[in-house]
Design a binder for these strands. Structure first.
Length: 301
DNA sequence: AAAACGGGGTT
DNA sequence: AACCCAGTTTT
């Protein structure tokens, strides 16, 4: 048995025993359900996505259903998942699937990448998880696992490299069905065992093969180039505070003082509201601001 | 290549 | 108080 085959067997065996029963992994879930889950999971942890995903698909089971929704309803249903522009991109995505693909989520990589809010990761995830295609899926978990296992690195570099993509392709099982399970298994291993902070190597099926472990767990070589984003007092915090007020008043504008109470500094509040309007997340009306009741068609480019 | 973009649980 | 999370888009 080759090294690659041993890695595959051990990882798939571990996954069969330890995998979480996440709702979007059910065979009942179609490609649209998978796509919605992947967009929600962009930078948002599984635990917070799960209840929102269930409500979302219960309300809008198909792209055609979502395509008819108002942006105010969509942003409100997005709740506090964060990065609410994703909610509007998902609405645009539903419209594009209806308008350009007959209401069916496309399978081709070029078509998927052309959809709003779908980048390299999500396109690969939909192709692999929804359609069972043989494509490398390179999310933050997989990058970390492969970086440790094959590159002896504590953490992957800040931006994805060609070497990482080559490495992911090199270890991908030949068989399509096996490759699809491999992708989700490595991702799950990164989420549950090979974690960023405190990896549980004693529980890892690949510990004996791990280059990082063999090298004595060298420190993160890219630490100096990682900068933690400030949060308190930023425009992002201001936008979030204002959006929370707008979500609580989906139809009518909130009483004027509520926005001021949510973000007292007037200059920054005005700038934040202007940026929300520019993003299509808010609209100015007679009595102040509210969630947008209408969204213009996205530019198709 | 770097910055902008939320929010909350965990350490 | 940092760190981290199934990233994408814009500059």
């Amino acid at each position: 048995m080759s090294t690659a085959q041993r890695l595959h067997a051990r990882t798939l065996g571990w996954y069969a025993e330890h995998r979480r029963d996440l709702p979007w992994r059910s065979s009942e879930v179609d490609a649209w359900g998978v796509l919605v889950s992947e967009v929600m999971l962009q930078q948002t942890p599984v635990a917070r996505v799960e209840p929102v995903w269930r409500r979302w698909l219960d309300r809008w089971p198909t792209p055609a259903d979502l395509a008819e929704a108002s942006p105010a309803d969509v942003v409100r249903a997005w709740d506090r998942l964060g990065y609410p522009r994703r909610a509007l991109r998902l609405l645009d995505c539903a419209r594009a699937v209806v308008d350009h693909h007959g209401g069916q989520v496309p399978r081709d990589a070029v078509d998927l990448l052309a959809l709003p809010g779908i980048g390299a990761y999500t396109a690969a995830a939909v192709a692999a998880f929804a359609y069972g295609d043989r494509v490398p899926v390179l999310d933050t978990n997989v990058r970390r696992v492969l970086g440790r296992l094959l590159g002896a690195e504590a953490l992957p570099p800040p931006t994805q490299t060609r070497a990482e993509r080559h490495r992911a392709e090199a270890v991908l099982p030949e068989d399509a069905a096996t490759s699809a399970t491999w992708n989700v298994a490595v991702m799950e291993l990164g989420a549950l065992v090979c974690t960023a902070r405190a990896p549980r190597c004693e529980a890892c099926p690949l510990a004996a093969d791990c280059a990082w472990r063999a090298a004595g767990f060298p420190a993160d070589a890219h630490a100096s180039r990682r900068h933690t984003q400030a949060w308190h007092g930023t425009d992002r915090q201001a936008r979030g505070a204002l959006m929370a007020v707008l979500r609580a008043h989906p139809d009518a504008p909130p009483p004027p003082d509520l926005l001021a109470r949510a973000w007292p500094e007037g200059g920054q509040r005005d700038r934040a509201l202007a940026s929300l309007i520019a993003d299509g997340l808010a609209e100015a009306v007679d009595g102040g601001h509210r969630l947008p009741t209408h969204r213009p068609p996205a530019a198709t480019g």
